[in-house]
Design a protein around this nucleic acid. Structure first.
Length: 724
DNA sequence: ACCCGATTG
């Protein structure tokens, strides 16, 4: 950028440094280290095109360009609905394009691009978001999707190598692109959208980008976040070690774009039963306020169904009494495992005489926005997964939300007009909540993460600069597992070729090991199918109740086999393929059609990775033991045996376990003596999911390094003599 | 007797 010829406003007076913005900027930095740009988003008398130009990010295009000139990293804070996700990519692409034509002799203050055809990447945590935002931006720019604007998600690439300048991707795609292009040279700028969600991939990506920014000074990073985590982000990306603020390499731009005010109400006293209380609150809202739909946040399917059924009773009583002045209530559940057609109903609109009540899990906070909502009922709780490195298992527990999450939920009421949020807890309870949700990287199994990082050249995980470092024992537990699987050697380096190949699979390392071992067992065809199906959840349909629930259980029982869940999945998949993958077959057997179709896609993707390694394709035919031995080759660490009391215990660690009620083995008469499992979920008890009966000899035979040393051998020997 | 939500050249 040549500032003297730049056809823009005075905010570009970078040269003298005394410009209004500069002053305001420095002053703000001193006071709260933020730049706040206020705006008024809502102007009813403009066309939609006009409206778009008035979106806050567009109005501050020049400020964004100025800040991107001066700082390598720009943290942008803006409320949802301010158009960040669609407008920022266009603005940043324009800026990059402009810089491309820069005269390099004046490049002291301006970052010239370090490549010929810079693209802008925008990362999204979810696939649907990447695709739909790409489609919207293409439409706004009047270009065909897949040309100037494209996207790349797990199974779909919709980009034009020559022409694409704006590319929406999922976070995982960008992490994977780093494997072949460690400095992301195809991009001039990267926008990390929804960074406040702090998914596992957000944190990995930001940490890797931090390394890359040091090596590529011309690369620009925009971190887009909806909450006040901005200071943390800003400092994380600030390479300036001196106290001289003007040498900072990162800054914060705050788009003050709150849509409408939301009044927050708290309970006067603590609430004993938030499901009952949420019902009462919905009724009170309905009787007191005339307009606006209601959104209730609970933690799980069971709670949602209970709340919906009570509210439906109330709605029915209203209809029967024909209460004058009170509108009809239309009550709808919303959670991820609900069939797609039922999910779509939350977007239905009804006449003025009907009020919609949506009872949802956290899905309504994170991945979808329902228009028309003006009332929020917030239980204050969420169901969350936590990894336990001691037992190498996950717990699924109901925990209080964070303040940030409560704020996000309340904000859902103010998208179109002023709203109200009713929190079913006291104000003091709110003050005692943790400010932020624990980032996923601190509550996950890190085996795959560490494997990926090692493949990207990050050998010393302890020295890797995470925003929020994971607990050390999580790292140790992951390294132990990787060592046991043979992915890393004594020095902690990736093994060749096993470790390196395992890192290329988008799978938990146990699956990768199983797949890479499968040609040796002559069952690569079957192993591939089983891995694919296990990446997809809810293969079995589970209707809410009544006759259909009974039929579904019966259908599942017919497909269940004593060889366990994984072999049952294999059979189901093969039958689905044999039936030409039609929906009617899936429906008839109470199987989840969409999940099966997705398993087909996943299988296809994994197959291409296997082909790259020139794996031999072999089918075991009817030799189920070959397949089960192959499963043990990957999952030997997850072994358990039936003790005399009738409970299962893990071989390593000696923890009590139970077969999950969803397992096909749960309803079978004789429980197997030895099993391996896919995972353990701690809910009301420690439940093993996806269980395969095995012969215990396979453990010592296939994983002697794991089971024949020290105390483990003693444990094994005593179990073997007692149980077989 | 029971699972929040996402996701991978």
């Amino acid at each position: 950028m040549n500032t003297t010829s730049s056809p823009v406003t005075p905010t570009h007076a970078v040269i003298n440094g005394t410009d209004l913005l500069e002053d305001r900027h420095e002053e703000q930095l001193r006071s709260d280290e933020k730049i706040c740009l206020a705006f008024n988003q809502h102007n009813k008398h403009v066309s939609s095109d006009e409206h778009r130009k008035r979106l806050p990010v567009n109005r501050f295009r020049d400020e964004i360009e100025y800040l991107m000139t001066k700082y390598q990293t720009l943290v942008i804070v803006g409320e949802t609905g301010c158009g960040k996700s669609t407008q920022l990519p266009q603005i940043v692409a324009q800026i990059c394009h402009q810089w491309m034509g820069t005269d390099t002799t004046t490049a002291t203050t301006t970052p010239t691009t370090d490549h010929k055809h810079p693209m802008v990447a925008i990362t999204e945590p979810r696939r649907v978001a990447a695709v739909s935002l790409a489609a919207r931006v293409a439409q706004e720019m009047s270009v065909e999707l897949g040309r100037e604007v494209g996207y790349a998600i797990g199974f779909e690439d919709c980009v034009d190598r020559q022409r694409t300048r704006i590319k929406f991707v999922t976070e995982g795609i960008l992490v994977n692109e780093l494997m072949s292009d460690p400095l992301v040279t195809s991009y001039g700028a990267i926008i990390v959208d929804e960074a406040h969600e702090r998914t596992l991939n957000t944190d990995i990506l930001l940490a890797l980008l931090k390394k890359i920014l040091r090596k590529r000074p011309a690369l620009r990073l925009v971190v887009s976040s909806a909450t006040i985590e901005c200071q943390l982000m800003k400092e994380y990306f600030n390479f300036n070690a001196s106290s001289d603020r003007s040498a900072d390499t990162s800054t914060v731009l705050c788009l003050d774009g709150r849509c409408h005010p939301v009044d927050v109400y708290y309970s006067r006293a603590p609430v004993a039963d938030y499901v009952k209380e949420s019902v009462q609150t919905v009724i009170k809202i309905h009787e007191r306020y005339q307009f606006g739909d209601i959104l209730v946040f609970l933690t799980g399917m069971e709670e949602v169904d209970a709340c919906v059924s009570t509210l439906k009773d109330y709605a029915r009583s209203l209809r029967e009494k024909q209460t004058p002045g009170l509108r009809k209530l239309y009550v709808l559940p919303m959670y991820a495992s609900l069939p797609a057609t039922d999910q779509m109903r939350v977007f239905d609109t009804f006449g003025k005489s009907v009020r919609k009540v949506i009872v949802a899990t956290n899905i309504a906070e994170i991945s979808l926005t329902i228009p028309g909502v003006s009332f929020i009922v917030d239980s204050g709780f969420v169901k969350m997964r936590f990894y336990n490195p001691r037992t190498c298992t996950d717990s699924l527990v109901v925990v209080p939300t964070s303040q940030a999450s409560a704020q996000q939920r309340a904000g859902r009421a103010g998208r179109e007009r002023a709203g109200n949020a009713f929190r079913l807890y006291t104000e003091q309870a709110f003050q005692e909540l943790t400010p932020f949700t624990t980032p996923e990287i601190q509550r996950s199994c890190l085996a795959l993460t560490i494997l990926q990082l090692k493949a990207l050249g990050v050998n010393n995980i302890a020295k890797f600069e995470f925003i929020s470092p994971p607990p050390e024992r999580h790292v140790v537990s992951a390294l132990d597992l990787l060592y046991a699987l043979g992915a890393i050697g004594d020095t902690g380096a990736l093994t060749q070729p096993l470790g390196l190949q395992m890192a290329e699979f988008p799978l938990h390392p146990m699956f990768a090991k199983m797949l890479l071992s499968s040609p040796g067992f002559g069952c690569s065809v079957e192993a591939l199918t089983i891995c694919a199906v296990l990446q997809v959840h809810n293969i079995w349909q589970q209707p809410g109740g009544g006759q259909r629930a009974l039929q579904a259980r019966r259908a599942k029982h017919e497909l269940s086999v004593e060889e366990g869940d994984l072999i049952a999945y294999l059979n189901v998949y093969n039958l689905f393929v044999k039936a030409d993958k039609v929906r009617s077959w899936a429906d008839r057997h109470y199987l989840n059609y969409k999940a099966l179709v997705r398993a087909v896609e996943v299988r296809h993707r994994l197959e291409s990775v296997m082909n790259r390694f020139r794996m031999r394709w072999r089918s075991a035919g009817d030799d189920v033991d070959a397949v089960r031995r192959c499963i043990v080759a990957g999952f030997f660490a997850n072994a358990a045996y039936l003790d005399p009391s009738g409970n299962y215990r893990t071989v390593r660690g000696d923890h009590e376990l139970h077969i999950h009620p969803q397992s096909v083995l749960y309803t079978r008469p004789r429980p197997p003596k030895w099993v391996v499992f896919h995972e353990v979920l701690h809910t009301s008890q420690q439940f093993m999911r996806d269980v395969t009966p095995i012969d215990p000899k396979w453990l010592t035979e296939l994983a002697p390094h794991y089971y024949q040393c020290g105390t483990d051998r003693e444990i094994m020997e005593s179990k073997l003599t007692n149980n077989t």
